[in-house]
Nucleic acid binder design. Structure first.
Lengths: 184, 184
DNA sequence: ACCTGAACACCGTTCAAGT
DNA sequence: ACCTGAACACCGTTCAAGT
């Protein structure tokens, strides 16, 4: 099975960027791992940024699909649940939350890079949909927490746990955020 | 009121590091803002890292105080509430969540820098105390979410809101995480 | 089409030297 | 004690040149 140089660059870059950080990873490092020169990378990509954009594209597209679907549904508990479930599926897709974890790790980059801003826009849109587009501060924060439950289930649980279980825990905790409480 | 060069370096660095990212901010930039040369910074600090350590120290010390206090208390709802309240006070201290926001923004740096690892350790300890040192995955995630409610109240609420109100919303939402629910 | 070698301006860091 | 100027190796990026 032969993989294109372009594909191999993307894979190695994603791994190193996520593990050691975007800025701390040099193109020399990536090139060396692939047995080519730094300059070779510039044949396949216009810039270091563009490597990130390239492996972010399909994830962004998938998020767009999820958002479009949610917008076509009537607001309410059911939409919130299904939206979060789809988001979690996407987050844990391909057995490792690779691209999503890259953005989580490289918050700084999100601010300046175009792909980062694209991801940020989507996250805010999902959060807003989770809050049923309501402006109440409490509901906005609750929506953000529900989203964060998915991300947090990846690193906030200390013991080894299969992905399916992590997803289950995340969705359970998130669902609780909207369940009515016994008044004090 | 004359401020020491050392202090001015710290202030400018904190601002730029938080706003534009640690890696994207060059020492030349900092030096220029202060009207000195790059090399002058090395008279006051051993390295770029050390600037971060220097302005992190008192925050870390304050977190240690909070952690020590919590460890002296019996576990339970009351401890969790008071612990989070103190954490929120610390987070919003000095009118701008400056140092805490730096660490939030520079996740990548947290992994490699010593000050970052110090902050990470404290956060995990607080999260663990919030979960009453219980190992149940659901409780661990809930504890992380409660902590995140404080951080999230800073950026997840779209409208302008005074700090006191943000804190209130954060603590309310966090408290809800442990309130018993009406069974389905 | 795919890649190299050499050059560019810029980065963090060091150090001898100045006051 | 406090700071400068010049140098170091390394970075992302460009480009003419090779196959």
């Amino acid at each position: 099975m032969v993989e294109s140089t372009r594909g191999r660059i993307q894979a190695v870059a994603l791994e190193l960027f996520t593990e050691n950080g975007y800025e701390k990873t040099s193109l020399r490092e990536i090139a060396e791992r692939l047995g080519v020169t730094k300059a070779a990378l510039y044949y396949h990509f216009k810039s270091k940024d563009e490597i990130v954009s390239s492996f972010s594209e399909d994830r962004l597209a998938r998020l767009d699909e999820i958002i479009e679907w949610a917008e076509s549904q009537p607001p309410g508990l059911e939409r919130r649940q299904e939206l979060l479930a789809r988001y979690a599926d996407e987050f844990f897709a391909s057995n490792h939350p690779s691209v999503m974890r890259f953005f989580e790790q490289n918050q700084t980059v999100v601010k300046t890079m175009s792909a980062g801003m694209g991801m940020r826009d989507r996250m805010l849109r999902v959060a807003s949909l989770m809050a049923d587009d309501v402006d109440d501060p409490t509901e906005q924060l609750r929506a953000a927490l529900a989203l964060f439950a998915v991300h947090g289930s990846w690193f906030a649980i200390r013991q080894e746990l299969p992905i399916e279980e992590r997803k289950r825990v995340a969705l359970d905790v998130a669902e609780d955020l909207w369940r009515p409480r016994i008044s004090p």
